[in-house]
Simulated scan of single mutants.
Amino acid sequence: MTGASEACRVTPRPGLDEHGFIVREGSLARVPPAFRPVVGAARDRAVDVFGTRLHSAYVYGSIPRGTARVGQSDLDLLLALREEPTETDWASARVLDRALDNEFEQIDGAGTLLVSRAQVLSALERHDLGWFVACLCTPVHGEDLAGHLPRYRPDSLLARETNGDLALCLPRWRRLIAEATAPGAPPGAVRARVRGISRRLVRTGFTLVMPRWDGWTSDLHEMAEAFAVYYPEWGPHMREAASLGQEPSDEPAVLRSFLRSHVEELGQWLSEEYARVHGVKAPRPASA
């Protein structure tokens, strides 16, 4: 009888539990030793800067997943405030980012995302920002908002609400690429654009096929390979984007070439195919 039960048990898909829900991918226990002082400093300084206005703080990305590389990985923070973030809050966050980046050689940049508690828990953000906090963010301070959010499956609704707005990104990417490759652009601008745009393209390609693949991963190369199973003709483009997202280039020529091959070609096709398969993400207020 036991043998029959074992034989009938369904093996969970990657990133899912036995019931088919996405498992929270990071934890403080997985933070590599070299990055623990960085996470501790980020937490303490966020509390110092925002005080009682800070509801909860999270770290996300490669550091809590345990895959960060010293000198190459960035520090990603999400701070949920009790009220809507102000311009002053955003300015304070940028100061915090620069201080962390300058002090800790382990990281290649720091980025802080500011949100409000109400925004995370809103119906509009339930399958985007809410999912992001519940599944991709690791709490380091305050009440974990995941306790107020549902469990999530890798379905078409989640795909639509997370990345169904790629068409809106393309014009902005063209402008950012032009600014980063223009004379007098600040140091690191090319590298930042290559990394950010590449990662977004790969994640969008993955979530396009996520319901069919029936699982979850945040590994860029795994995402690209999952995408290539269903769209092999675009596989080389997506694999190149994954490589650039992992190891971005500082060369303006690479970014200009990337504009032609990935933004104009892959990006345009991907936005149209995404809308056809999953629909378009619910519109956000203009101020969002």
Rank of each mutant, 00 (worst) to 15 (best):
A224M: 04
L100G: 04
A68N: 03
L124V: 13
D101E: 14
H19D: 13
E103H: 15
S287K: 10
A99H: 02
D74V: 04
V194A: 13
T181Y: 15
L166D: 12
P187H: 06
W90Q: 15
S249I: 09
G66S: 02
W269I: 00
L77D: 06
E251L: 11
L168T: 13
R239H: 10
S249V: 10
E264T: 02
G61S: 14
G15W: 00
A226H: 03
L170G: 12
H19M: 08
A34G: 01
T2G: 11
P187Q: 03
W234E: 12
R24E: 12
I107E: 03
S62E: 03
L145C: 03
A241P: 09
H262E: 06
D219M: 00
M1C: 02
S116M: 06
D214K: 14
A118V: 00
R191T: 11
L121A: 00
S27D: 12
P85M: 06
V140N: 03
S62Q: 05
F50P: 10
D101W: 10
R200W: 13
V229Q: 10
P12G: 01
T162D: 01
R200V: 09
V194K: 11
A7I: 09
R160Q: 08
A46H: 00
R45L: 15
S156M: 04
T217H: 03
E179M: 15
R98A: 11
